[in-house]
């Protein structure tokens, strides 16, 4: 009986197996997102709708606030710098991964995947230990070596936040780069070397442009993650350090101003999509050669 029912479901066209997931997402994803959208434009008090009057008041409040723009600017440059340094550190390792033997490849892959399986919170905590106070790892080493006499203040700064973001998001940059680099055609490099180009020139003129799809994938993911992360700024940036994502958390959980929280969350989401779109479009312009393939 049950089996024949399953049979019928599977026979009734391809959609039915996907129907439960589809329905689930409509109820627990689309509808919540709709409520989030509504809460940005309709007055809310303690989670209940006060009146069904559509208002742009919250949006205007935020957009005309100088503080918001300063906070947004910090979110933006933290995102950009984290992405840039992530790329800088990820690329050489991903490139070397394609040049070494199977054993070392495995080691690099394990080193990359392992942090993904560890919670980001634990890894952020590690930076508290490393950068923190006079007993932090860096200061302890520097003072033992006599390089500094007083502990440096490293925690609770842009530096600490960006270091944390770079380390925590590295795997998301390395993995797409490894994927695209290991499937590349080595003959092109041999051709370039054969034509008299140096290895450095070959790297910048051949390898780097050919890995553009991986670069776009990695940078968009890392930017989106860094731009919307609120845990790292809270822990490594300290009390007064706010980004848009941190503000969303504070307005919703601490201040309980859900209208403002909702509109900030929406602004964060929309601006994040716009930046990702811009990176993708700019990247696509740089790799128009891929279109000829089709």
């Amino acid at each position: 009986m049950a089996a024949s029912l399953v049979d019928k479901v599977m026979k009734g066209g391809g959609f039915w197996p996907a129907a439960p997931a589809f329905l689930y997402l409509v109820v627990f994803f689309i509808m919540p997102m709709a409520v989030l959208l509504a809460f940005g434009f309709v007055p809310i008090q303690r989670g209940t709708v006060q009146s069904a009057n559509f208002t742009l008041e919250y949006l205007f409040d935020v957009l005309t606030d100088d503080l918001f723009w300063r906070v947004w600017w910090r979110s933006f440059y933290v995102g950009v710098l984290s992405t840039f340094f992530c790329f800088l550190f990820a690329y050489p390792l991903a490139y070397i991964h394609t040049l070494v033997g199977r054993r070392l490849q495995m080691v690099i892959l394990i080193l990359t995947v392992a942090p993904l399986l560890t919670s980001a919170l634990v890894r952020t905590y590690a930076w508290l230990v490393i950068l923190g106070g006079r007993r932090g790892v860096v200061n302890a080493v520097l003072m033992d070596l006599g390089l500094v006499s007083r502990p440096l203040r490293m925690l609770y700064s842009d530096f600490a936040v960006i270091v944390g973001m770079v380390q925590i998001h590295l795997p998301f940059m390395i993995l797409p780069l490894i994927t695209v680099l290991s499937s590349r055609d080595r003959k092109l490099e041999h051709a370039s070397l054969g034509l008299g180009a140096s290895r450095v020139r070959t790297f910048f003129r051949i390898v780097l442009p050919m890995s553009m799809p991986g670069i776009i994938a990695g940078t968009t993911i890392v930017f989106a993650l860094s731009y919307t992360n609120f845990i790292i700024p809270q822990l490594l940036g300290g009390g007064g350090y706010t980004t848009v994502a941190v503000q969303v958390y504070e307005f919703i959980v601490v201040i309980l101003d859900w209208n403002k929280g909702a509109i900030l969350a929406l602004l964060l989401l929309v601006s994040c999509f716009l930046f990702v779109l811009m990176i993708t479009l700019a990247g696509n312009r740089m790799m128009r050669w891929t279109e000829a393939k089709a």
Partner: peptide
């Protein structure tokens, strides 16, 4: 349908958390 099913992955966890909280309140 495929786009919808993979869409949540593109959103920060915070947005999904907040949206669910709001929907729950509602």
């Amino acid at each position: 349908a495929s786009a919808l099913i993979v869409a949540p992955q593109m959103l920060p966890g915070m947005v999904i958390g907040v949206a669910t909280l709001f929907f729950g309140a509602y």
